[in-house]
Amino acid sequence: MKELILTTYTREEFLDLVKEAIRSELSQFPPNTPKQTDKPLTIEEASEFLNLTKATLYGKVSRREIPVMKRGKKLYFSMSDLIAYLDKGRVKTFEELNEEAQIFLNRRKLRR
């Protein structure tokens, strides 16, 4: 876990540092191309991608649990929407929870 050192930066300076750190981290990953993430998938492709039966997928669509596009009687799914749907179910690690707790506590100390 990295240590967080607080100094007397102005809000704008602090935000600039955070933005630069985020840009630096994101530059290490290849950019997503629209061809990969926004390709519309059929119900068969989406059920295979999510490892769900078509019946389960139809149920999730009817309960509006999963984003879908409809054209006539056909259903289409965006790959990026399905990935976002999967990410919502991600469980955080203890390390991530501890880091969030530290950030929260540090913010509370700054406000006082």
Rank of each mutant, 00 (worst) to 15 (best):
V68Q: 02
Q28P: 04
K109C: 02
I22K: 13
S24Q: 11
V18R: 02
F49A: 06
E65F: 06
E65N: 07
P34V: 03
A101C: 12
I83W: 01
R71V: 13
R23A: 14
R71Y: 12
K60A: 01
D16K: 04
S47H: 11
V61H: 07
G59W: 04
F94T: 14
R90S: 13
R64H: 02
Q36Y: 00
N32Y: 10
L41D: 00
R107D: 00
E25K: 12
I83E: 10
E99R: 14
F77M: 12
R111G: 01
R90T: 14
A84W: 05
K74S: 03
T37N: 00
R90L: 14
T53R: 09
S27G: 10
T37L: 00
E99I: 14
P30A: 11
L26Q: 13
E99M: 15
E96L: 15
L52S: 02
F49V: 02
L6T: 12
K54L: 00
K109T: 04
K70P: 01
L97T: 12
L57P: 02
I103T: 10
K54E: 03
V68T: 06
G72W: 04
I22T: 12
I66T: 03
I83T: 07
P31Q: 03
A101V: 11
F49H: 11
G89W: 06
Q28Y: 08
L50F: 07
L86R: 14
K39C: 02
K2Q: 04
E48F: 10
N98A: 15
Q36H: 00
E65P: 03
M1S: 09
T56C: 01
I83P: 01
L75I: 05
M79L: 08
E48Y: 08
K35Q: 04
E99K: 14
T53F: 04
L17D: 09
A46C: 11
R11W: 09
M79E: 08
R64K: 08
M79Y: 05
S62M: 10
Y85T: 11
A101E: 12
A55S: 10
V61Y: 06
T7K: 15
K2L: 03
V91T: 15
F14N: 10
R11I: 12
P34A: 03
A21F: 02
G72P: 05
L110A: 05
A84Y: 09
K19T: 05
K39I: 01
P34M: 03
S62H: 11
G72D: 08
N32I: 08
R111V: 07
F29Q: 13
L86F: 06
L110I: 00
M79D: 01
Y76W: 15
T33G: 02
D87Y: 09
L15V: 02
E100V: 06
L4M: 11
N32C: 07
F29D: 13
Y58H: 07
E95N: 14
I22D: 09
A84P: 05
V18M: 02
L86P: 10
E100L: 13
Y76S: 15
N98F: 13
E3K: 07
P40G: 03
I5C: 07
L6S: 13
T56W: 00
A84H: 09
V61A: 03
F104N: 03
I43S: 09
D87G: 06
S47N: 12
T42H: 04
T10L: 07
K60S: 02
N51L: 07
A21N: 09
R111M: 09
E44S: 13
K54S: 00
D87S: 11
Y76V: 07
R11G: 06
V61C: 08
R90Q: 14
R108C: 01
L17V: 05
K39F: 00
